[in-house]
Every structure is written in structure tokens, then in C-alpha cells.
Design a protein around this nucleic acid. Structure first.
Length: 521
DNA sequence: CGCATACGCGCC
DNA sequence: AAACGGCGCGTTTGCG
């Protein structure tokens, strides 16, 4: 057994003082609010009130005591508690609380308390290696630019590239009078000047070092483990958020970034095991919309992007090439995000030629045609999105499959930008919320229930939650058994839930394990 | 000096 | 000018 029972809890809040469920804490010792009675507040009840308030108004993420009292217009926590739970009932959100949020509160706490083991030596070595490379790149960039400047300053970078070196940007200056130097802009200039390649390499290393490699090892507790916070009420859609540090954005796309994951290791005798829902948002879009073709693709176990491409481009599945699949993928994601034609056009790129790695954008007409064709093929999706928008315009909120609400006060605004934004977020909320809030949170609940039945709670521990993915630390000798239990629980969420929801679209789950996070996928 | 903002970028 | 949803966090910059 470890000594974590008595370990110091380094967690703290940004806004206000969190009343972490801490045995030693007594509410009377400090209180920032004047005139507030100083009696003891049960940390669990406080957390319940925080979650309940957020369910009532998800724009108030992770509310603290002062937010709770302000909302209830009282100085008494007990009064506020009662008021908030009455409101919860009035807003028809008590089911979400009782069935989804309340049952996982203790699991989230255990996940934070357990933390995840860090290989500090690994991070040290990685740091040395990347800093060395960063130094080389710095010297190279200074030499090629003919001037020393702060490469970390976008402003100075813009002046050097587009001023001194006379490069031409496809974009005009921003409102603040500076050129954008983001990656997508720099990539257009990659062959115009060899310095761009070095700058891009510099950017990547600088990001990895300053956000992860040089920071994470310093954040470990006395137990040598990292205790990031996972806020189950941290987002407007119902998702978790993670902070101090954010463990939901660990690099995975590039090789240099992915290596960071090697520093997150399993305890002795354990493996780290990742379980992720495959394409869960698109499956949910198919479920919610009931679209015939999209349902068919999933029911037949086909790749969704290829399947969509075969309908949109009107070719058989085996005639779908990688380019068609790529374009279908763009629009599939666009659907989830409420994308319009112009956004689609911006994202629909294709290679200029086989020998040329650059890409060019499609014309607006092409994007428009593609857009219309997509919605003609998947008319169920089109009609569903239209229905959600109509509902939001009428009621000023939307609901997930399980009834989780999000409100849109700007949905009837006369300011086009605000109205359009509200419409996009309104169509996205039920999909994102059902998939990566309701379903994954129910999965957390049911996995634990099943592990308990099998007396495995001491051998299997949730350590990370990354939206459509759960990472458990599992004792090696029960790996196979736990793997099956967890997968089955995750797959069966919809039927098992209080909705007893039946669908012929399977919720696929993939898993992988290893001695560190780099090995689990 | 601390703080807010702009910009940029990591993930799902 | 404006760009598709949801996050957290780094550095720079300008301000009080």
C-alpha cells in the first residue's frame, strides 16, 4: 500500500478557494464573504450544489461557494442548497444529476487522488534532447534572418518575415496591425524561404517544452505522482475539463510530441489501459437523427468516412480513394460543428499534384456543391439539425438524448454574429453532450458497478478521462478479465441506462495497454 | 510589479 | 472583419 492516504493535497482553484473534499478542512477557518455565517459546510454537499447549479446553467462552470450563494441570493449555504435543488427539479434536470453526475462524484475524486505516476528521469532526458535541438534551431534562424529577435514573439516574427525579409502573406494585417504567423500561414511560405521550415520546427519544440516537458515533472506531489484536476462540471456541454495540468491535451499527432506520453507510467505490477469509443460523435449523430444511410454505414460496420464518401461521390465503397475519404472526413466533422459553406471551403484542400506536397483550396462553387450533395444524401441529418435549431429558437435551450440542457440566450439576437454562433453551438450541444458527456459518464458509472460485482475495485483504477476515452490502471494479473468487463460496460451504456435505449448502431470500443501512455494505442 | 489581452497551439 | 463545436495554457505585450 502506498502512503497516499496522508499525502498533502496540492490542488487549488483559480477563482476562489475550492473546498476540496479534504478530511482536515473546516469551513469556519476562512471565509471570504463578509456577513456569511461561518458554520461547517459538508464538502460533498458543496460539490453537489456546484454540479447542480451548473446543470441548471452550464455557462457557470465549476461554480464555487460564492457563485452558489450569489445564484441563490442568500448567505446561507443550506438555504442555497435547497433553492438550487428546487430549481434543478423545475428545469427537469434532476435525472441527469441523480443518474449520471451524482453516481460518479466519488470516482472522480478517487481519480484525482490516485493521480498518475511520472517518470522524471525520462522527462529530464527528453528535456535535454529537445533543448539542445532548440538551441541549434535558434542559431540557424538568427543566421538565416540576419537578425536576432524573439522567436517566441509573433509580432517580432511578423516584422522579420513580412517586413525585413519581404515575404508576402496571403492574409492582411490583423485588427491590431500585425501579421499572423500561425502554422497554416507559414506553411504557404515553406518553399519560398528555407527559414520557415526551421521556424516550424522551433515552434513545435518550444510548445512541447514549455507546456509539457519542463512543466509536468515540477507539478508532481510528494508521492512523485501527478494529481491533475478533472472537473466534471467544467464545460458548457457536459464534458469534463482538466487542469493543473491539462491531461486532456497531451500530444499524440507528431512523433516528437507523442514521446511525451512515454513519461506517464504505470505503477509496479500494473498496466495502463486505454478504452476509447470509436467515432462516438458521428454514431450519436446517426442515432439522434435516425438518418437511414448513416445508420446503415454503422450497422454494417463500415468505415464512416469511406461510407459517407461513397454516397457523396456516388461510387462503390471499393472505389473510394484516400482523397475522397479525406474530404468526407472534413464534412463529417463539419456536421458536428455546425459548419457552413465558407468554413467547408477553407478546410477542403486537395494536393496540387502527386509530386507537390502543397495543397490548394477548392472553389466556393465546388464547396457549395459538395455541401448540398452531402445534405441531399444524408437528408435525415439535415432535417435533424434543422429541428434542433427550430427547437432552440423556440425554447432557448437544447437537450441531449438524456435530457441534459444547455441554454442559448443569444439564439434570437438581432446581432447576426451572436445569433449565428448560438445556432452553431445549439446544433452541436446535443451531439457533443450525448456522446462525450452523458454516455462516457454513464460508462464510468457502470464500469465501476461491474468491477465492484467482480471484486476488482482494488485492482482497477480510473486515472484519466479524455472525452471519448477512459484510461485505467489495471493490475497485471486481472488484465484480460478487466478488459472484457470495461469494454462490455462501455458498449452497453444505452440499453442499461434509465432510457433503456435500443439502437442497432453499435457503440464500438477499442482498447490497448502498455507500461506507459505511449504504448496504449 | 501584477494583471488582462492577443496570439498561438496542444487535444477530442 | 467575419472562420466549424468543446477545452487549458504558454509567451508576449501593454496597461495601471
Amino acid at each position: 500500500m502506498d502512503a497516499s492516504g496522508s499525502k498533502w493535497d496540492p490542488r487549488e482553484q483559480k477563482n476562489g478557494n475550492v473546498l476540496a473534499p479534504n478530511e482536515n478542512f473546516r469551513g469556519e477557518s476562512e471565509n471570504v464573504l463578509s456577513g456569511v455565517s461561518s458554520s461547517y459546510i459538508d464538502p460533498i454537499k458543496l460539490q453537489e450544489a456546484s454540479i447542480a447549479l451548473w446543470l441548471i446553467n452550464s455557462d457557470i462552470s465549476n461554480p464555487q461557494l460564492d457563485d452558489i450563494l450569489l445564484f441563490a441570493q442568500t448567505s446561507s449555504f443550506d438555504t442555497a442548497y435547497e433553492y438550487i435543488f428546487n430549481q434543478l427539479k423545475e428545469k427537469k434536470s434532476e435525472k441527469i444529476f441523480e443518474e449520471i453526475e451524482r453516481p460518479i462524484m466519488h470516482i472522480v475524486k478517487e481519480m484525482e487522488d490516485r493521480g498518475i505516476l511520472i517518470d522524471k528521469k525520462y522527462f529530464e532526458n527528453l528535456s535535454a534532447e529537445y533543448h539542445k535541438e532548440l538551441e541549434k534551431l535558434t542559431a540557424k534562424i538568427y543566421k538565416m534572418a540576419g537578425v536576432e529577435f524573439n522567436i517566441n514573439s509573433p509580432k517580432q516574427m511578423g516584422e522579420v518575415l513580412f517586413g525585413k525579409m519581404g515575404m508576402k502573406s496571403s492574409k492582411k494585417k490583423s485588427a491590431t496591425g500585425s501579421f499572423s504567423t500561425k502554422v497554416s500561414i507559414l506553411e504557404e511560405l515553406e518553399e519560398a524561404n528555407p527559414i520557415i521550415k526551421e521556424i516550424l520546427a522551433y515552434r513545435e519544440l518550444q510548445k512541447l517544452l514549455s507546456t509539457y516537458i519542463d512543466v509536468i515533472p515540477k507539478m508532481t506531489g510528494l508521492d512523485g505522482k501527478l494529481h491533475a484536476k478533472f472537473l466534471q462540471n467544467g464545460t458548457t456541454t457536459g464534458r469534463f475539463s482538466s487542469q493543473d495540468p491539462n491531461l486532456q491535451n497531451l500530444p499524440i499527432k507528431t512523433e516528437l510530441g507523442k514521446r511525451i506520453r512515454g513519461g506517464f507510467i504505470a505503477e509496479k505490477g500494473y498496466k495502463l489501459c486505454a478504452f476509447d469509443y470509436s467515432q462516438i460523435e458521428l454514431r450519436v449523430a446517426a442515432i439522434l437523427s435516425g438518418d437511414k444511410k448513416m445508420t446503415q454505414i454503422f450497422r454494417e460496420g463500415k468505415d464512416i468516412h469511406s461510407g459517407v464518401a461513397s454516397f457523396v461521390f456516388d461510387v462503390s465503397l471499393d472505389k473510394v480513394d484516400s482523397e475522397m475519404r479525406r474530404q468526407a472526413k472534413v464534412i463529417n466533422f463539419g456536421i458536428i460543428y455546425g459548419m457552413g459553406v465558407s468554413a467547408l471551403q477553407k478546410n477542403l484542400v486537395r494536393p496540387k499534384s502527386d509530386s507537390d506536397t502543397r495543397s490548394e483550396v477548392v472553389t466556393r462553387e465546388e464547396a457549395q456543391k459538395f455541401y448540398i450533395n452531402y445534405f441531399n444524401q444524408f437528408s435525415g441529418v439535415r432535417d435533424y439539425l434543422e429541428e434542433v435549431k427550430k427547437f432552440a429558437l423556440k425554447n432557448s435551450f437544447t437537450e441531449t438524448l438524456f435530457g441534459r440542457r444547455r441554454y442559448f440566450p443569444n439564439i434570437n439576437s438581432r446581432i447576426p454574429f451572436l445569433k449565428n454562433m448560438a445556432e452553431r453551438t445549439a446544433t452541436n450541444a446535443p451531439i457533443q453532450g450525448t456522446a462525450t458527456a452523458d454516455i462516457i459518464k454513464l460508462a464510468i458509472r457502470y464500469v465501476e458497478e461491474d468491477l465492484k460485482k467482480e471484486k476488482l475495485l482494488e485492482k482497477v483504477h480510473l486515472v484519466l478521462q479524455i472525452h471519448d476515452e477512459l484510461v485505467y490502471e489495471i493490475e497485471e494479473n486481472v488484465l484480460e478479465k478487466a478488459d472484457q468487463i470495461i469494454k462490455n460496460a462501455m458498449r452497453g451504456v444505452l440499453e442499461r441506462s434509465y432510457l433503456h435505449y435500443k439502437t442497432d448502431i453499435p457503440l464500438e470500443v477499442h482498447s490497448g495497454s502498455g507500461d506507459n501512455l505511449g504504448e496504449v494505442k
